[in-house]
Design a protein around this nucleic acid. Structure first.
Lengths: 132, 132
DNA sequence: CCAATTTATTTACCTAGCTAAATAAATACT
DNA sequence: AGTATTTATTTAGCTAGGTAAATAAATTGG
């Protein structure tokens, strides 16, 4: 297999595992945090908005939101269009997000800080240049 | 989240899905193919050799090998050390691997061919430079 | 206005990774 | 030799992604 694929998949797995490790202190998994951050940035969103934004399929988000709701991080509210559910951060989430964000920023700095800003830009350009 | 992470995870998911799509014609999933290719390159291997080589945990490989064995792609043979199982490609696998390899090479060319050789090297260097 | 189609969400079930703990064989220690 | 530790594999159970199909509400067309 082309070493690029192997290296890319491997780094992706590795970074996900590291992120999970670091988020343990906040009782969160990386994908849960991704959703919380998404809601923090964009405000209340429907499930469809979330999965389209994060580029995953709907059932993944349904499940993740169900867990986040059970754990008290988010609330599901019926929309005017009664097919849709609007998801909002709970007060608990709002309260805890700053500390989590701090953890994440430190993690990102640790992982990506080994690259200069130019290298980071170059990396993104090359990633985008791969077909897709 | 740092856009590098988002982009990396997303591309990784995307490429895996594409690879699965392309491998459907051979009735294989990408991770199954990874193991077949590993055995093709290295010859018979124990489970431990496989998971260390592929950089995943042992249970993932146990399950994958069980499926590959059921499907007739590989054989599990007891080693001299009776704790270990040695995995080999079946004749069926040997017979079909060339066609699959052809499919994979075309896929890789399609995906990565948008980068020059220098860009591919640069990409690998940057990936490695991220902590890990 | 009602049937057909579309859209939003959910359910069921699959691969694929992970950790923790169980088993069984080999090795090391005293 | 007999116990303790290590090593290889497996099992159980978790997150996280995917597809296909079910459900329910909204929209469209005749």
């Amino acid at each position: 297999m082309n070493p690029i694929f192997h290296a890319l998949f491997q780094k992706s797995r590795y970074l996900t595992n590291c992120l999970n490790e670091v988020l343990k202190q906040h009782n969160l998994y990386s994908s849960q945090w991704t959703i919380l951050y998404c809601l923090h940035s964009n405000g209340p969103m429907t499930l469809t908005q979330i999965w389209k934004y994060l580029n995953v399929e709907a059932p993944s988000i349904t499940r993740a939101i169900t867990r986040l709701e059970t754990l008290g991080w988010v609330l599901r509210i019926d929309g005017e269009d009664k097919r849709e559910k609007i998801v909002t951060l709970s007060p608990y989430a709002e309260e805890n997000l700053p500390a989590i964000t701090k953890t994440i920023l430190a993690f990102e700095e640790e992982m990506v800080g080994t690259l200069t800003v130019e290298e980071q830009q170059q990396f993104l350009i090359l990633l985008e240049k791969m077909k897709g």
